[in-house]
Amino acid sequence: MEILVCVKRVPDSAENEISVASGGADISREDLVYAVNEWDNYAVEEAIQIVEREGGSVTVVALGDSDTEEVVRREMAMGAEAGLMLVDDAFAGSDGLGVATILKAAAEKKSYDLILTGAQADDGAAQVGGMLAALLDRPYASLVNKVEVNGPTLRIGREIEGGSQELSDIDLPCVLSIQTGINEPRYVGLRGIRKVASVEIPVLDGAALGVDAAAVGQAAAKVRRVDYFVPAVGAGADMLTGSTKEVAAQLVDLLKAKGGLN
């Protein structure tokens, strides 16, 4: 099984206080901690486990700038044989369809049986996998939390509301978006990273990929972010302040008053 996994480098929202900068033109990028998108880490792990069972190889592909290399290497260190970076100034400002169009060109460089994406990334769009499948005219399933290979088809589970699992059979080749919790992504140590440090990662631009420059980037985007803002919401929470002892004392009084101590 030849598997392509799409990974994105994102600000780690669990680690960062994200704030709006330059009058809404961007978020404040100084001191941001970046990491691989949480969902993509599960997708890479799943691909590696499939290859360990069925044979084949895993390629990790990322569209971004040159800083993306650290993320690609980290994911390769998990056990992906190859990496691929898609870098071109002309890609900047692409909408979901633009990103999917560029990834499609990369996917067509080789014949992959299976393409995995994460269920969603930092802007919560959950769109690129489904768009890529439609562009490639391949069957698609989102929010996948189980993959079992049965010859030319996969038995897959999709996570649906309430945590129930919807089982289906899907024909290969196909595209799946992977949900967290499907596996336990392996730990990557320094040794693992060192092992892949000298593996060459091809960097492809629009020309090398053969993508029509007019079909991607800001100019082609049907969907554009106008600005970031902090919504004027209701009162928000009453914030308790003071030393740890003082705050704890206030919480005890509050919990008592509200019936929170059984």
């Binding site: 369809l97 769109q127 489904g130 768009m131 562009l135 989102s142 969907v223």
Partner: peptide, 21 residues
């Protein structure tokens, strides 16, 4: 989970803009 499954590909096939969530 149905909208997420259906929407992105539908927008591509319709040639329409996709505005999620």
């Amino acid at each position: 989970t149905l909208g997420i499954d259906l929407g992105p590909g539908l927008s591509v096939k319709l040639g329409a803009a996709y505005l999620p969530d």
